[in-house]
Write a protein that binds this DNA or RNA. Structure first.
Length: 652
DNA sequence: CTGGGGTCCT
DNA sequence: AGGACCC
């Protein structure tokens, strides 16, 4: 294996070559190219793949907004378009646009290195996630029309297209048997990663280019190694399945168009028979393009990949596997399922073992409302209680804004589902997390500690003054920290979170004729008192909530345990402060004082930009300690003073 | 010069 | 409460 240093050294030119379609780097083992996963997967004996009975019917698409934060920032500030530009958090590049990538900028690179590679790069702070959350919401709204949607992070989404595919095929006509739109992955393709640290970010190598030295295409005889049918040609699969994939690809293309017209954002997509494969291929022809994976090609695609590229294999699992000589998915297939389960634990073991064959039984399941919302800031050094308080003074209002955002979302969800009464979203637990390197700068390294306490009632009360709420939050957080940090400290990060939300208010009535998968038959909570209705119980409320969130279904053991714990904790089912919704829902009070008063150069008449501008104005205060960007943004006076306060000498 | 979020399991 | 995983 090559050292990281040399990999980084050559990355600049490599990427330019790929982006602009210049001569292709040599294939596997090349000295100048990106990491290429070669076509050497046919070595050794392969046991049978795990069964996957539903493998053929489902059509799943994975959507991924290209360079998400960068695109959002380019929408907010058109001056950034077409220039090399990157979004930063503190000293890190979190994403770069394609102009910057062609100069060698990569995800999670330090800003120092970014500026060295590309002095003209515009750096924009992306520490406040509010605008990205707002965009992500619009993206999902556009995608949801095409099927059940499951989000992963802010910029990724799976959509189950099965029902829509069925509908189109049943309807007949041209839409029931369309030509393939976008790319079709085949066993001729080799796949590679251009970032040694992120082998999961893979792209396809165009087979015509890899073989084009003499202008003639030389197909390599495909071999099936998934054990199902050793003689089958993976590129000639079941015509019915291929047709379903083609219909899925057409739908995915429409979905990408829909997102683009609703938001202006470009995305890539992968279309396959399960979530894992859809995600694997969605990036193969990034940006702004899509890739379809025929069923028979899946095993070929997966087998040369390093284990780290399989979902579920992080740093820990990779270390474990490599230590035992298992480096690739093909290696993984040669060891037994029970061995993998022994090494990684039953759950991860099964998932990873399946993944090595391209099997994934997980359904596309919408994520329920979040269990936690948190706000965090990091800094060079923080050793005194007054500085802790200064940090909390910034973070606490941020968290309140997040909690209120969450409340608004809950109202949308429940009212959309036919509820008459907006749900409660009062957090019962306040969690504080911190990274402490210790009094002398020596300590727990990068690990974090955390402690929690009861969320003060005032913090949940949207009817009172924002400052009082923030003060209550701050006090509680400080109390926790004081009892934990009894000796000296030197914090590098501080995080406050609100979670363990109370069961939402169950609707007593539904709009006549509205079904909407809402609470069925369970009695609920008296809206007036906020207490459990006479024949209701906390359990009923939780149960109803679960049914609503997940559309029914069984509880896992963990859920059962958590539920009964919560039930015990609830006692008589008292629900404090959260249901006082009446006049307290006006979040604008919270932001009565504009944090930034400079004229945002209003973007023409586009409603999307207008929305974003609103978000900006109402967003929580940007974090302290922001890096100065090449595209300067005014800082509030309060923040400027904090910035200098925290700019103190670095310990190292 | 190592973000700021989240999830789930143990 | 902490760790592993995901973005």
């Amino acid at each position: 294996m090559e050292g990281a240093a040399s990999a980084e050294k050559r990355s600049v030119e490599d990427f330019r070559v790929r982006v602009h379609g210049g001569p292709h780097p040599l294939r596997a083992g090349s000295e100048g190219g990106a990491t290429t996963f070669g076509r050497d997967d046919d070595a050794g004996w392969a046991p049978r793949p795990p069964d996957d009975a539903n493998a053929s019917r489902r059509i799943v698409a994975h959507f991924d907004v290209d360079a998400f934060y960068s695109q959002v920032e380019e929408l907010r500030d058109p001056r950034l378009r077409g220039r090399p530009m990157a979004v930063t958090q503190k000293f890190l590049i979190v994403t770069a646009n394609y102009a910057a990538r062609s100069a060698g900028l990569k995800k999670l690179m330090s800003t120092t290195k970014a500026k060295a590679l590309c002095p003209e790069v515009a750096l924009v702070s992306g520490e406040d996630l509010t605008p990205y959350r707002a965009c992500a919401k619009k993206v999902r709204a556009a995608l949801e029309r095409f099927g059940t949607c499951e989000k992963l992070g802010l910029d990724e989404c799976w959509v189950d297209l099965t029902a829509e595919v069925d509908r189109r095929i049943a309807a007949g006509g041209p839409a029931s048997d369309p030509p393939l739109v976008g790319h079709r992955h085949s066993s001729e393709h080799v796949v590679e990663s251009d970032n040694a640290h992120r082998p999961m970010d893979i792209r396809a190598v165009d087979p015509e280019r890899t073989n084009a030295s003499d202008g003639v295409h030389h197909p390599v005889p495909p071999r099936c190694e998934d054990g199902a049918d050793p003689d089958a040609n993976p590129d000639v699969s079941d015509p019915a399945r291929e047709r379903r994939l083609r219909v899925g690809a057409a739908i995915a293309a429409e979905a990408r168009d829909a997102v683009r017209s609703a938001t202006g954002l470009r995305m890539s997509a992968g279309i396959a028979h399960n979530k894992m494969l859809a995600k694997l291929v969605s990036g193969l022809h990034k940006p702004d393009d899509q890739t379809t994976l025929p069923a028979g090609v899946a095993a070929k695609l997966v087998s040369p990949l390093p284990v780290r590229a399989l979902p579920g294999v992080g740093h820990g699992a990779e270390r474990t596997l490599v230590h035992r000589g298992v480096r690739t998915a093909a290696d993984l297939r040669r060891v037994t399922r029970s061995e993998v389960c022994e090494w990684l634990g039953p759950r991860v073991g099964r998932k990873v073992h399946d993944a090595a064959w391209g099997v994934d039984r997980e359904e596309v399941a919408p994520k329920p409302a979040p269990n936690f919302v948190t706000c965090e800031d990091s800094f060079r050094s923080c050793t005194t209680w007054s500085s802790v308080d200064a940090v909390l003074a910034v973070i606490a209002p941020d968290l309140l804004a997040r909690m209120d955002e969450e409340y608004e979302d809950e109202v949308e969800r429940t009212v959309g589902a036919g509820a008459l009464i907006p749900a409660g979203r009062a957090a019962r637990t306040l969690t504080v997390k911190w990274r402490d390197v210790g009094p002398g700068g020596k300590g727990t390294g990068w690990s974090r500690s955390s402690a929690s306490t009861t969320m003060p009632t005032l913090a949940n009360d949207r009817s009172i003054d924002a400052k009082r709420r923030a003060d209550a939050l701050r006090e509680a957080a400080t109390r926790v920290l004081r009892s934990e940090l009894t000796r000296g400290f030197d914090l590098r990060a501080l995080n406050v979170g609100a979670g363990n939300f109370e069961p939402k208010a169950v609707t007593l009535n539904k709009r006549p004729g509205v079904e909407a998968g809402c609470v069925s038959g369970s009695s609920g909570i008296d809206v007036g008192t906020g207490r459990a209705a006479p024949h209701g119980s906390a359990f009923a409320a939780m149960n109803a909530r679960r049914d609503y969130d997940r559309g029914g279904g069984r509880m896992s053991k963990t859920e059962e345990r958590a539920l009964s714990e919560r039930e015990r904790g609830l006692g008589g089912g008292v629900f404090g402060g959260g249901l006082n919704g009446g006049g307290g829902g006006e979040s604008s009070d919270v932001f009565a004082e504009p944090l930034r008063d400079q004229d945002e150069d209003e973007e023409d008449g586009d409603s999307f930009y207008a929305d974003l501008a609103d978000v900006q104005r109402s967003s929580a205060m940007p974090s302290i300690g922001r890096v100065q960007s090449l595209v300067p943004r005014k800082r509030g006076a309060e923040q400027a003073s904090l910035l200098s306060f925290f700019k103190g000498p670095s310990k190292r």
